[in-house]
Computed example of a mutant assay.
Amino acid sequence: MENNRKIIAFINNQPIFSNYIENLPCNIQLKSRARALRKAGVLSEVIFWLQVHKGMFWKIDFDRQRIIGNYIVDFYIKTLGLIIEIDGASHNNKEKYDQKRDDYFISLGLKIYKISDLRVKHDLNNVMIELEKYITKEFGKKT
């Protein structure tokens, strides 16, 4: 990584440095599926989206239902190369699939942050505080 990474935001007065990953693969055939997922509106994803859309979370830009390779991720922060997954019942009994998917994302240089569906619904304030701490820890220092 280059030493002069751009500051993309400040969280609690701490600079957050860009970790943009260029040329991510994208299976364009998943475009209509991603659009359908956005429209379907899983409750926990909608709740989370209302906290982060339009730069409401420290002026950081989030994408919803982003295609990366042959996968669709819940949320993606392109300036950080950070995937945010909200894990609900759809992830039950899919440990091998999820691990393969995670390994693929990591091989691209992406980071993954997982949040449980129940926590978004019942502990949103702490979820957002923990996300702030994670981003500050991972992207708040130059490497």
Rank of each mutant, 00 (worst) to 15 (best):
I83M: 07
S90M: 14
P25D: 01
K39E: 06
I16K: 07
P15G: 09
I47D: 04
E85K: 05
K54L: 14
I67P: 07
N70F: 00
L50V: 04
A36Q: 15
D61Y: 12
G81R: 07
K78Q: 04
E45V: 13
I28P: 00
N27M: 06
E22T: 10
V46G: 05
L37I: 01
V73A: 07
I83C: 00
S90Q: 14
I21C: 10
F75N: 03
I60T: 06
N27K: 04
R35E: 14
Y76E: 03
I86E: 11
L82C: 01
C26V: 05
N27L: 02
K94R: 10
N27V: 05
S44G: 08
A36M: 13
N92W: 04
A34Q: 11
G88Q: 04
I72F: 07
Q29R: 12
F75L: 12
Y76F: 15
I60R: 01
I77R: 06
G41Q: 04
L80I: 09
I21Y: 07
K31S: 15
N19Y: 08
V52M: 11
N13E: 13
N27H: 01
E45W: 12
S90V: 11
N23K: 10
I67D: 06
A89V: 08
P25N: 03
M56A: 12
T79K: 14
L80M: 12
Y76N: 00
V52R: 01
R64G: 00
S44N: 05
L82W: 00
R64L: 06
P15L: 12
D61H: 08
R38L: 10
F75H: 10
W58N: 15
E85A: 01
I47F: 02
E45I: 06
S32P: 02
N19R: 13
L37D: 02
Q29L: 14
Q51I: 06
Q29G: 12
C26T: 05
G88V: 03
I16M: 00
L80S: 06
I68H: 04
I68Y: 00
V42P: 02
I28Y: 05
A36E: 15
D74N: 04
Y76W: 01
N23E: 03
D87A: 01
G88F: 10
M56E: 12
